[in-house]
Write a protein that binds this DNA or RNA. Structure first.
Lengths: 184, 184
DNA sequence: CGCACCATGTAATGCGTTACATGATTTT
DNA sequence: AAAATCATGTAACGCATTACATGGTGCG
């Protein structure tokens, strides 16, 4: 799947593996992320499949950079992936819910401490979506007027993150209340 | 991670691989699931690590069943996993958001069709959490009075599913509206 | 002086999926 | 007569993580 994320970013402009990782970290990271090592290996395999081209740029007093760019076959692969609509819900995994599900024999205090810690973390994440992300989107979109329709969709994903964290925080408060009152 | 899910279920009672898969499908599947083949291989490796015991039950006119049970070391492993609190948010992946993020050059109609389809799917899933899941929990808890505190936490995870799908549906409606009005 | 950042990659391992293989019983 | 359920597993593959390996620049 990382393949498509990389094709998507390279559809905007040629980039190195290192830069791709940075772009991901500052935009899609809350719904798609990867380690640098995976970015490098995936770029290599995309190039060997003929979906990307690369050239090495020599730099004075810095390591050489390998810049990847999307070629026509890569652009076609991206379009065809986007055209294939999803017809089923994607199964999700959530370790925190798994733990909670099996915590019936845990100490009440440990359970409450874990729930409070999670609330803290989700509130912080909510702050990121409400305060930092809008700025990132505005700045990126400002660099080119052709990106207006893209920015609308970036904003939609940001809004998802915001609503998700709002919901998560509300659920944690509700759950803390229930555990506090009824857990023996 | 599946290891811990299996240890968790086996903490209630001895089960076969096939039964474990069924239990997962009817309870944790929205935040943890696995294929049968993985269940079997993971059980085997848990046994070889000495966390589970198994015995084969011969059956007349049915294939033999291998029943796994948690031993003291397995119970300890489960407890120690539950005791190690999470201190960071778990990164999530969501293919639908990834596609949306890169759909700036897609046809408006295709995009709206995809959003409508997703709304349909999430509304159906919401129905499952509000109508089917409470019954499953009530019935399972009714089988043994010692499961009351467990049932409280099962209910908390169900409630998460309900709130998640509610939120997702609201977000889809908001996004459909935005795309409908502003996407060219 | 040490840490963060820039920059690239390989190797080993682990977790999970898909495909393969078998076969009886029960339900439609 | 066909499909679903019960029941078990192995083999091949793919995606992702962790660890290893290197080395210069800039900042506090």
């Amino acid at each position: 799947m990382l393949r498509y994320a990389l094709l998507g970013f390279l559809n905007y402009q040629p980039l190195t593996g290192y830069e791709l990782k940075q772009f991901m970290d500052s935009s899609t990271s809350f719904f798609w992320y990867a380690k640098l090592s995976q970015v490098y290996t995936t770029l290599k395999s995309l190039e060997s499949e003929g979906l990307l081209d690369s050239r090495v740029e020599a730099q004075a007093e810095r390591p050489d950079r390998r810049v990847y760019s999307l070629n026509e076959r890569g652009a076609e692969e991206l379009r065809s992936w986007l055209a294939r609509a999803m017809t089923e819900l994607e199964p999700q995994k959530n370790t925190f819910l798994l733990r909670l599900f099996f915590s019936g024999e845990s100490e009440k205090e440990n359970l409450l401490a874990q729930l409070h810690l999670m609330r803290q973390l989700h509130q912080e994440q909510l702050e990121v979506y409400t305060h930092q992300s809008p700025e990132v989107i505005r700045q990126t979109a400002a660099r080119s007027p052709g990106l207006a329709r893209h920015a609308m969709l970036w904003e939609a994903t940001r809004r998802f993150g915001e609503m998700y964290e709002e919901m998560f925080t509300r659920w944690l408060e509700e759950t803390i209340e229930v555990v506090h009152k009824n857990f023996t």
